[in-house]
Amino acid sequence: MGGGHAHHLQIAGDTLLHRLPAHAKIVGLVTFALAVVATPAPGWVPLGTALVIGVALVVRSGAPGRHIGRRLLVEVPFLIFAVVLPFVATGERTSIGPVTVSAPGLMASWLLVAKATSAVLAATAFSVTTTSRDIVAGLQRLRLPATLVAILSFMLRYLSVVGDEMTRMRIARESRGFRSRSVRSWGVLGRSLGSMFIRSFERGDRVHVAMLSRGWTGRLPVLDETPVAGRTWLQVLTPAALVLCVAAFLAVRP
């Protein structure tokens, strides 16, 4: 997993999305998600706009379609929920073809699919264009508490180390004839997790001592404090602004 999962999150490239500073992108992403979530029902046009923006962002990220498709799988459980929703919700009934479903449930289903999908698309566009190091630095510039930033950077830095360790343990298990088939194999897997904890914890201790010997003071140094141009803020806030403008325009139109 460490190999398959951690390394291929970010896809190198030189698009506008790659060049924008990480903290500005995070602000843009959060405001976009907030604008989408705050859109009142039915919101056909604003949420349609949001979906188009989401798709456009993903396309502009330049990541291959198969990669994006795999990343979108996280949404599947909620799409299933959205399909079930019209059938279990109460309220006024409406019929589509041969079945009758709940009208408010149907509306909630559309809202859920539109809001969750456009936010997931935008978040995917963000994560394929931003390295994990830049994400940590971006959160640091956004004044996330220093300890949280440090925990986060440790987690990301050691993710593949621990992941590789897990892969080696799996190879060791399987080369001794272990096959993970039923609940009976849980004992072995549980002990594997146990020894992984010991290794992780002791590694944390060793890392700490190594850091102290290199002058660790309790906070990570800030490497990049270059001020961001107004134009950049304009660029990252465009998606949220578009959704809000469309919604506001429709609201005031007689």
Binding site: T147, A150, I151, L152, S153, F154, M155, R157, Y158, L159, V162, M196, F197, S200, F201, R203, G204, D205, V207, H208, M211, G218
Partner: peptide
Amino acid sequence: TAPLAGLVAVF
């Protein structure tokens, strides 16, 4: 805190 909690988070 930082290194240990970081490694527990990885775990």
